[in-house]
Design a protein around this nucleic acid. Structure first.
Length: 432
DNA sequence: TCTGGGGTCCTAGGACCC
DNA sequence: TCTGGGGTCCTAGGACCC
């Protein structure tokens, strides 16, 4: 096995990334749109968050507000979809399940990306091509495969596989040194971890390409920039700094927030929406077997158009770590009363759990309460609640305080939503 | 009058990712 | 009229302790 600069055995990672994932998912069920521009919008049809190649060629930038481009898009006959996360999640699961067959381990990095461990695989470039072809033929979603001895190289290889016609969907890199020719000319901000700010500061030092970055002495990089930049430098040399994480680490913070299509000024309505948020974050908390010891809330008016913009947030530390929805709803309401001010139109609000610790068979709670049976009963009740909601759908069982919001979720603007082709039998696709 | 220094913990804010 | 949501990591600086 080859060694890296530190003498450690070298790994081989593949990064599989779906091309324009959300847009590709929509096209799977609308093959007539294959060669037409397609974009997908964020919640509330607020921003454009995904677009296929055709849409990008027309110059539509991801992240811009939809209303600014709406009329131009209509003129150019762009197919516009509201986001349909249930559909994308279900396609994602199918892709991840297929990928598992090709590597010894998988790290699902995001809804449309995964790293595969190919360390003990021969013929990796060939396997990459097989992955590309099989995912496309079995799900309809086009992917690119980048292979490298570090995650940073795999990411860069993936980018090259997508952009450089010499590498049709698959690219393999060993190190900067070995592959200088096909790496050096790329602009610095194509690197994973170099965003707007780092790019600007590197450019101020006359670094515009990966080649000029790698030509700098290591000591200079260390002196001028922070640790993350130096790590990118090492990873490009083939020295592993980012480890492979087969099991996702427990989240350190769990939050949820929404922008409302119609601003809310009514206490009762806001209260019920927020109770729904607490139910949703505590379910995620229990799913990762954790407890929280701090909850925070925030509410805000529309910063873009309210003269008298208001942002209020409060947090509270709990005496005992908990995963109990009822306890957290009570704490949330205490905080919400503090931040809620009459005569404001709230445009966005959210709940956040922090100070999260593992729930080692809820022993900590048992030690601090008198009635062990009560805790045991509550634990079973919440477990049952989660199982029912997972089995029969979100909000099948809800707490009384979230009643209204659960039955009648606050209106989200979704004017162009596709059907739940894969997750709802009533909306299944027909082949005629 | 002279006003140390090192360690730890916490938090806020910046930068980045998808 | 209409501007998303959910995360991670790092660092500087304050508070506190001995």
């Amino acid at each position: 096995m080859t060694k890296d600069l530190l003498g450690r055995p070298q790994n081989k990672y593949a990064l599989i990334d779906c091309n324009s994932f959300y847009a590709s998912c929509e096209v799977v069920f609308r093959p007539d749109l294959e060669d037409k521009p397609v974009v997908v919008l964020s919640n509330n049809d607020g921003c454009v968050i995904a677009g296929n190649k055709k849409a990008k060629e027309l110059g539509f930038k991801m992240g811009t507000p939809f209303f600014k481009m709406k009329s131009v898009m209509q003129k150019q006959e762009v197919a516009v979809f509201s986001s349909n996360y249930a559909l994308y999640a279900s396609l994602s699961q199918r892709i991840m399940a297929l990928l598992r067959q090709y590597g010894s381990a998988i790290e699902v990095y995001s809804i449309d990306e995964a790293f595969l461990d190919l360390t003990n695989t021969e013929e990796t470039t060939g396997i990459g091509a097989l992955i590309r072809d099989n995912i496309k033929s079995q799900t309809g979603v086009p992917v690119a495969v980048g292979i490298g001895s570090t995650k940073t190289l795999a990411k860069l290889a993936n980018h090259i596989a997508k952009k450089d016609p010499n590498f049709p969907g698959v690219c393999e890199l060993t190190s900067y040194e070995a592959d200088r020719k096909c790496i050096a000319h790329w602009p610095i901000d194509e690197l994973w971890g170099i965003g707007r700010q780092h790019c600007k500061s590197l450019q101020e030092h006359n670094v515009f390409t990966i080649g000029s970055f790698m030509d700098l002495p290591e000591a200079y990089i260390k002196k001028k920039w922070h640790a993350p930049v130096w790590r990118i430098y090492k990873e490009l040399q083939g020295v592993r700094c980012h480890t492979f994480k087969e099991r996702p680490p427990a989240k350190q913070g769990i939050g949820t927030a929404r922008t409302f299509a119609q601003p809310v000024n009514d206490w009762a309505k806001l209260k019920e929406i927020m109770c729904g948020f607490v139910a949703s974050v505590t379910e995620k908390l229990r799913k990762q077997n954790s407890l929280t010891q701090q909850i925070s809330v925030f509410v805000m008016t529309d910063k873009h158009r309210e003269q008298n913009h208001y942002y209020g947030s409060e947090k509270i530390k709990l005496d005992v770590p908990t995963d109990d929805t009822a306890v957290l709803i009570k704490a949330m309401l205490f905080l919400l009363k503090k931040v809620f001010k009459e005569r404001h139109n709230y445009k966005k609000a959210g709940v956040h759990l922090t100070k999260i610790t593992p729930n080692h068979s809820f022993q900590q709670t048992l030690n601090k309460v008198h009635n062990v049976n009560e805790v045991e009963k509550k634990h079973q009740l919440l477990g049952t609640l989660d199982r029912i909601n997972r089995r029969y759908g979100k909000n099948t069982l809800v707490f009384a305080s979230q009643r209204l919001a659960a039955r009648q979720p606050f209106e989200m603007k979704q004017e162009n939503k596709s059907r739940k082709f894969t997750t709802n039998i009533n909306e299944i696709a027909f082949v005629l």
